[in-house]
Amino acid sequence: MRIIAALHERGRAAYLSHLDMQRTLQRALRRADMPLVYSQGFNPHPLVAFAGALSTGYESEREWFDVRLEGEIIPADFEARLNEVLPEGMAVSHAMEAPEDLGTLTGHLAAARYTLWVRPERAFSAAEVGSALDKLLQSEELMVQKRTKSGAMVPQNIRPQLYEARLTACDGASFALDVLGELTAGGGLRTEAFVNVLLDFLGSTGSFRCRREEMYFDGLPGLPSLGKGKYE
């Protein structure tokens, strides 16, 4: 059977790399004695796949993943057994049985929502940040420098990948944003680039923390979606 569920990574677990996460989930599945299905071939590995990769240092409320199992298990039991053996800072939720012919998570990944906590070098009022955000959203182009695989810097317009951005809190020293952006197998909104554009616009620099709140899919019934045609 096929189970789809979401894993959260909070606190120190945010510092795991994507590979660390894959290893950790696989080992937890084995500790929970799940009847995993293995790939054929030279180096068989369990069929476990995350919808996307999460940057090291980011927290996440929902990293959706997909597991193949031999035999049947009630999704609630899957969740309970796995949660008993996951390390601190990680837990699964929203486990559901998925039809075998449902497409892959990665292939249907469309967007993600983030909370960003930004700490600029100097303080800004809510009005200042709000008006900066409005201006950014009104512009057609938001150019950033992107490093290619070969190490060269090329200009990139990130505006098409930015869907929504809203100020949710501002206490002077720092502010929080709710951001919705594209996320697909091929890439998507780089939150780091977006924060840099915003800070640049404010005439400051600073640091930020990020938490992925949700992932959205196209054409996978039962999984979160943005609704047809909304951001095409």
């Binding site: 510092y15 937890a28 090291t56 240092g57 390390p87 601190e88 640091s207 923390r209």
Partner: peptide
């Protein structure tokens, strides 16, 4: 505290070396 640790971790190449919290940690 968390804030100081976060600041240190953001500056190193492999933060997972310093976070602990592994399964079966006592």
């Amino acid at each position: 505290n968390d804030q100081i640790l976060d600041r240190l971790l953001s500056r190193v190449e492999k933060p997972a070396r310093y976070i602990g919290g592994e399964y079966n940690m006592q």
